[in-house]
Design a protein around this nucleic acid. Structure first.
Lengths: 328, 328
DNA sequence: AAATTTGCTGCAAACGTTTGCGATATTGTT
DNA sequence: AACAATATCGCAAACGTTTGCAGCAAATTT
């Protein structure tokens, strides 16, 4: 156990602990000569400040918490990657916890965050989470909470989201512009606010066209289900299929491959995605980008704003862009 | 700032701090009546023990570090997910850091881990990392280090890996059994030990057949490159393509889709994978499974063994299985 | 020469716990 | 009734820092 402490250095050098502490952080009170001696010995002894002691003394931990349903997901992945990089760049560490969409584990994770005295929390709640009191309680302790992606309905909290309505509208507009006539839209879990918003905006945009478009809506909560749903609608010969998410896209594309349908001649495809899945196919799938990376950056800057003292509650969204593949 | 401490509780109850501390952890010295009073007040005051103070006092942090090139990767994802769940289940937290394959960031991350006085480290080094001294130094401090996936050559450290040679052999054997004649094998970065092992085992198995199989080998370090490589070899009409990894598979499959080749009639496909990518296609791709999840579980149990006092240095591998899709 | 400033360093308390040991009161034993 | 054994609790030190304040010598000003 090599652990070097300020005390050990001070004893060797015949100086006081406080002098060592100050020398190491370039305090003006300490002479250059002393600083040099201290720094030198500290490096040869591999001194590493004890974060626990610092946190305890200063009562701020330079640690962010992040709670997410699952890290095995393209979108959350990009989000986490962005937050992780920015955190490190700003001198913070990140504690990542998975809830597995289980409200109980969510609470356990939250407790862990509190015990570690995090300075801020990023959280994406599970669909089953109804009581967000425990999260709001953090705010009372002056610990900023940034909800992302799946956010609660309540108004008194900071949220960053993708522009659900807008991105669905953009996809619908793209379909309209291509003069498609028979559209199949497959959406996700109807309990999710995200699904409701996307569904509403999508149907509205499609239906407001003068030359009526024939629109069929169905739902799937997994790629396997999407596969079945897609297969069941093929006899109606849709000329376009819209997928609300990567999961659905993957199911849909399996059917398309299976039936050897040509994209976009036999059937056009458009989706909303973070960008990875559409690039798996040929032709690449046209998609409305909802970037996990951008959302992560936004969440982080929102966090920093809170820490800088902004008490302004805001609900932010990232803009979407249409990325053209060859599938529409 | 609501923060309840043992001291606050002790003052309210007119007891000493140590009594509160002991009562809260069900110490036999404390009477049931007192315990009850303490626990009651603690819960109503939302008492959360300060992890920093505990770590400082006990000098063990219940915190694992995990350093990985990137979390945006199916395999590492599954690995991390497994370790994260197991950690929480055993009362540990996990600090996840990305190195971006940059040895400098790797060192920064390592320093962060040391400063946070982690109890153990899981690390997958970047291909450019030559000096593993800093990692081994942790071991001298009695902090177990488990190298996973991309591990150093040095012998004096704990490693958990996928069975590179075996999985490549299994894939090759599957190809041989199907009596394929013209095989294209696409492999990754030649600097990686993983690539060398897989390449060697694969070619050996293919070549030891009596009825000679015509084998072509090429390399690609990204899916884009794999796409080009695959396209450049099509004129030789291989009947089978073997992909060393998901990245390569994705590039290969794009070409196959583009050229409208039928799988497996026109060309058979087999890959080594964690399992997610092969399921994206129809027919699903036959693959030799190298499970990130299993590796994570193995790494974790190896870590727990080290913490339990095992000084036995071991180099473990997980077994692979062949998962049949319809592509071979 | 006395008074003031400046430059450098040390003292000691505090952050919130844990824990060995000693103190007191209660009970049981001879 | 004296003594031993138990049950219950408090004291105080320690973990490794940070930081306000005080101390003291040397340099500078009156």
């Amino acid at each position: 156990m090599n652990n070097t402490t300020l005390k050990k250095i001070s004893e060797i050098l015949g100086l006081s602990i406080s002098t060592i502490s100050r020398a190491l952080k370039d305090h003006p009170d300490i002479s250059d000569k002393t600083k040099q001696r201290v720094v030198e010995l500290a490096t040869t002894l591999d001194y590493e400040p004890n974060a626990n002691a610092i946190n305890l003394r200063t009562s701020h931990s330079k640690l962010f918490g992040l709670i997410v349903p699952s890290i095995s997901n393209w979108f959350y992945n990009a989000f986490i990657a962005a937050v992780e990089v920015e955190s490190r760049r700003n001198g913070y560490s990140l504690m990542i916890l998975q809830s597995g969409d289980d409200p109980l584990i969510e609470i356990t994770n939250l407790k862990l965050c509190r015990q570690n005295r995090i300075t801020g929390l990023f959280v994406c709640i599970s669909p089953e989470t109804t009581n967000i009191e425990p999260f709001l309680k953090l705010k009372e302790l002056d610990i900023p909470v940034i909800f992302f992606d799946k956010v609660p309905d309540a108004g008194n909290c900071n949220k960053v989201c993708v522009a659900d309505s807008l991105s669905a509208t953009m996809a619908a507009t793209a379909i309209v512009n291509k003069k498609k006539k028979k559209v199949l839209g497959i959406f996700g879990n109807t309990n999710l606010l995200m699904t409701k918003k996307r569904l509403e905006a999508f149907t509205e945009t499609i239906n407001e066209k003068v030359n009526k478009i024939q629109l069929t809506i169905d739902h799937a909560t997994s790629s396997e289900e999407a596969e079945k749903v897609m297969a069941s609608h093929l006899n109606k010969k849709p000329d376009t299929v819209f997928c609300m998410s990567d999961e659905i896209l993957i199911g849909v594309m399996k059917v398309i491959q299976q039936k050897k349908l040509k994209v976009p001649e036999d059937i056009a495809v458009i989706t909303i995605s973070n960008g990875a899945a559409p690039k798996l196919y040929y032709p690449e799938i046209t998609y409305v980008e909802t970037s996990g990376h951008k959302l992560g950056m936004l969440a982080f800057s929102s966090m920093m704003a809170c820490l800088a003292g902004s008490t302004f509650i805001q609900e932010l969204t990232i803009e979407s862009i249409l990325v053209e593949g060859g599938s529409l």
